[in-house]
Design a protein around this nucleic acid. Structure first.
Lengths: 129, 129
DNA sequence: ATGACATCTGAAGACATGACCATATGTTGC
DNA sequence: GCAACATATGGTCATGTCTTCAGATGTCAT
């Protein structure tokens, strides 16, 4: 056959594809880059013991000030404050000021759902995802 | 008992507590350190665009080989292989060898549920957690 | 056996992240 | 105003993570 052109695939640069159908299906249903970005940002926020414990504490008691959160998760208040800023910037928690205290609470039920699903699994099959 | 103990709190070192009841409740219901550790390890795995896209691809089409996954997520095969090793070590995916190909698939329905909950939220309220 | 192929592995560099300290801001009560 | 307090912020430093490269392993076809 054509000695030069037959092996060149227009949009596959140095990536070989075995099952074109599955690849096409997966690409069609794949989340967009922007969505993947948003998702990973959330999961990164949840990927820290201090932050995840803060969120669980808020799930349980609804609203807590910084120093109480520090007592609950047993971390320095500065660390908790930093953690809360990240969570607040991402829109995961909100804060309410009352005098010199600042009370934090969850901002969205979906995060609560995520944490519940995760905790649920932990209790049932602790050693396997 | 100890004569001078009234102001000394046994396990609170230099942490002031405002609402003792809420703190006690939160501490009682708090996930353990080990559980927090496991949870954060999972969320860290999900906190990377390549890995999360790989998982979504597997959710959609069930099983894919490394080079097809690389085509779907548009990343070098080496990166995908590294990503898959982390996911496999954590028990999130499993692999099946067939000749020189290696096919990967999800290992647990709970991760699928987590991804579904997340994607669901992304579609409904894309800008707020 | 030889070469082409699919995947894996280890290591090095760029890069991001978390912990800690000092300090700044804003609030309350005197 | 001043001092004590609750929280926030910025900088530095050590640590960890992702990407990439070069090469290793195991498989298939000739």
């Amino acid at each position: 056959m054509t000695p030069v052109a037959s092996s060149i695939d227009p949009d596959a640069c140095a990536v070989r594809i075995i099952d074109h159908d599955k690849v096409a299906t997966a690409r069609a249903r794949m989340i967009s880059d922007g969505e993947a970005q948003q998702l990973t940002e959330l999961f990164r926020l949840l990927g820290d013991p201090t932050r995840v414990q803060i969120l669980y504490a808020l799930v349980e008691v609804g609203e807590l000030c910084v120093c109480d959160l520090a007592a609950v998760v047993d971390a320095p208040e500065t660390s908790v404050s930093h953690a809360l800023r990240l969570l607040r910037t991402a829109g995961v928690v909100r804060n309410r000021k009352s005098g010199r205290m600042v009370y934090y609470s969850l901002n969205d039920a979906h995060v609560r759902l995520l944490l519940d699903v995760s905790a649920e699994h932990l209790r049932h099959e602790p050693n396997q995802w």
